[in-house]
Design a protein around this nucleic acid. Structure first.
Lengths: 176, 176
DNA sequence: GTCCAACATTTCAATGTTGAAGCTTCCGCA
DNA sequence: TGCGGAAGCTTCAACATTGAAATGTTGGAC
């Protein structure tokens, strides 16, 4: 699961990635453009895609979809009684309410969560982990985190912290 | 199009974003976990979603899908004769070949590109900008870049460069 | 010269998401 | 008490993507 082989490929300094090539091409064709924002935006978009693939591989190996783990883990870490409203789950996953209904349907069918209308506010529906769901999520956390560590392992701890700090600032400005 | 209002919200230092909350929650519920990779991975995923939304708004205003501009711009900046093979376009957009066929179908229907089998290697299909496609893409570049600058405007230029450098290193290790 | 494996694209069924419309349920207000 | 609007979720049609199978093409082995 370690990507030692690809790491070797970039020991050389100043190797260029896809974003560098995009910027270089614009420089050739439209030299007057200020293409600096591409260096950030394109890289974030591509990094997200590649990380998603990397996360998917881990969950594939464990017979789960990434979003399934996301729902279970969100319920698990939210503590309390391990139940959340549909809207909260939709917000956490950045998908629409319709998508969440669909997802929870399937998790209920798998026996990993239950669904019940809230007694106090009967408009809201609370999704709760079953024991099986809790155990499943619990058993996957460590491996998932290890996988994440591996995916960003090319960066030193310092670099990881810098990156996190810069992204936090960006996210706050984007309204996260 | 400027996000001054959201910027104001984070003048206070050490405000926490969604990733901070996730980490904090795990700390409460499973204190033994090393959740540091979340700070990077989750943030990249969320930043990508939010940036995609921000890009979408600009192209919505201009009656185009983001991917439509992506194809046109890729063809435009690749220089040469402004034509590319299907596989190249799929690679640039990180989608499958099937998706590309569909996308190019629609761009052809709109009169923005043409499709022709390559004379030298008749397995490959070359997609080429029409004059209209070229003009359309050309007219949108500057606004698009201005929008991108705006989206990451909360970061100083130095910070943007640091962020770009860290992401490049990460992307290279991920095989970009 | 023929055959075969690899390549490049298209086709197609399965699947998941979005956005809008539709239901209940709740709350503020008269 | 009753009404109107908003909140919260579900339903549904439209649409896009994926992954696999199918089609056609090329180049090398023999």
């Amino acid at each position: 699961m370690s990507n030692t082989s690809t790491l070797k490929l970039c020991y050389a300094r100043h190797m260029s990635d896809a974003a560098d090539k995009v910027i270089e091409q614009w420089g050739d064709v439209r030299p007057s453009l200020d293409t600096t924002p591409i260096g950030v935006v394109v890289r974030i978009l591509r990094a997200a895609r590649l990380l998603e693939q990397g996360l998917k591989e881990y969950f594939d190996d464990n017979g789960l979809e990434t979003w399934e783990y996301d729902v279970l883990a969100t319920l698990l870490r939210t503590g309390e009684d391990g139940s959340l409203r549909m809207g909260d789950l939709a917000g956490a996953a950045l998908v629409t309410a319709g998508a969440l209904t669909n997802r929870i349907d399937r998790l209920v069918a798998k026996g990993l969560v239950t669904r019940a209308t809230d007694a106090e506010n009967r408009r809201t529906v609370r999704t709760t982990l079953t024991d099986r769901g809790r155990e499943l999520a619990d058993g996957l956390i460590e491996g998932h985190l290890a996988n994440e560590r591996d995916l960003i392992g090319a960066l030193t701890e310092d670099e990881q912290q810098q990156l996190a700090a810069l992204l936090r600032k960006l996210l706050l400005s984007l309204g996260d």
